[in-house]
Amino acid sequence: MAPSGGKASDTCRLRGDLPGSATAAGDRNQGDEDHTMSSWKILTVAVLAVFLTAGCAQRADEAATSASSSASSSGGSSSGASAAPAQVEAGSQEDLVVSVGDRVFFDFDSSAIRADQELALDRLIAWLDTNSSARLLLEGHADERGTTEYNLSLGERRANSVREYLIAGGVAGARLQTVSYGEERAAVLGSNENSWAQNRRSQFRVR
């Protein structure tokens, strides 16, 4: 499974979007692709350095997720990763992905907003402020390590945690709808800790 989203942009990421620490997540994403491992690691470190000093164009779509998120049929149009930021229509899904990121991650069996994810949601609040007509569908997702019905509840809780955080930040509740997919829409394929960490998420879709 080769990442198709374009390596250069994938490696520019929002710190808050990563399921664990940034470098650990970098290892995870490429953990099954040993042929690119070492060079990718170096690239990650290099780009993170750039990020810390300059803040490159941020993409939440990570290398490992880009292939699968475009396969998701839940109504998103987050593909077209090759488009340059200049061509992105303000307030679109693509704009959201490029300027804020389209997901936050959760701990196992938890729907609490993690401290390391708050930055991403704060940026989302600012983005919604700028794009005042944008409405979002907040999807809640769970990893596969629970029962189907419990995970539907957990996904609902996660989506709602995001909704409440955004409302507390001043976003009108009428702009935010939630849906739970439980464990039915993995973002990262495979059955391992790395994929589970990235599948425990809420994902945002511009409607």
Binding site: S72, S73, E144, A186
Partner: peptide, 8 residues
């Protein structure tokens, strides 16, 4: 289908 987009 796959985990990302199963047909059920």
């Amino acid at each position: 289908g796959s985990q990302a987009n199963p047909q059920k």
